[in-house]
Simulated scan of single mutants.
Amino acid sequence: MTDFTHRIHSEKGVDGFTALDGTVKFYGFVHAILLKTGARQVLDFGAGRGAALVDDRSVYRRHLRDLRVGGAQVTACDVDEIVTTHPASDRQVVIKPGERLPFDDGSFDVIVSDMTFEHIEDAPFVAGELIRILRPGGYVCARTPNRFGYVRMVSSLVPNRHHAGALRSVQPDRKALDVFPTVYRMNSIGQIRNLFPGCTVFHFNDSAEPSYYFGNAFLYRSFMILHRLLPGALATATNFFIMKPGEGVAEQDCTSAS
């Protein structure tokens, strides 16, 4: 079954995604890093139930979200016990907010965090933990709403307790169990550089096709125009690829901000 967006984006007829798709862009870079580093141990941080791996109709997007590239072992972790149902991981771990992550130093070659950074309250502590468990030369790959984008600005006007109800209006297919409180403390290049000093930070901002349009074709087209006009600094999403210093570089040079 198709909707009006297929008339706007003819290419959606191939596999349900557009040429603007933010998921395809982000995971394209993630896969490049997995291949480049020859990653053997990968952490999906804030993995949840792996909703997109289950609910997404696009075969290609489901393929990209599966991080078991080249035989890599994937650990999925989340504060919610629903992570134990994650379908594309070799191990599932429930973590506790405010506690050290239950992994040894340098355990992972690559850490992927997709739409999780906006929910982290104690950003300095979590950043330090991610770097601690990352091996030298490894990457933290994160996609998150841009702190200066309109999506974040509008959501900040809605109390967290009402987010699930509000999202039901603008995204009818979004399930309440996939909605979590937002705080936006790891959502700009400035914040990330402060939180990961000494690391090399690559990034790009991106405005993909609209996600919040109440199923209305006029609003969708209007937001499409807005996205074309938005300067990069005000894009809806931002993507970070944070590289920990390699062997021979002082470990303390890439720790959390105090």
Rank of each mutant, 00 (worst) to 15 (best):
F4K: 09
T5C: 02
R7V: 14
H9F: 15
F17T: 13
A19T: 14
F26I: 12
G28K: 08
H31A: 11
I33F: 05
A39W: 03
Q41D: 15
D44G: 07
D44V: 06
G46S: 10
A52R: 12
D56H: 12
D56K: 01
R57L: 09
S58M: 07
V59S: 10
V59K: 10
L67A: 08
L67Q: 06
G71Y: 05
V74K: 00
V79L: 07
D80F: 03
A88M: 00
D90F: 00
I95F: 03
P97C: 04
L101A: 05
L101M: 08
F103L: 04
V110R: 05
I111H: 06
S113K: 04
F117H: 13
E121P: 02
V126Q: 02
E129V: 12
L130M: 14
R135I: 06
C141G: 11
C141P: 10
R147C: 01
P159K: 08
R168A: 14
R174I: 10
L177W: 13
L177H: 15
P181N: 12
V183F: 13
Y184H: 14
R185K: 15
M186P: 08
M186C: 11
F204E: 01
E209R: 04
A217Q: 15
A217G: 01
F218T: 14
R221Q: 15
F223K: 12
H227Y: 14
P231N: 12
P231G: 12
A235P: 04
A235M: 01
T236M: 07
F241S: 07
P245N: 03
V249L: 02
V249K: 04
S258F: 00
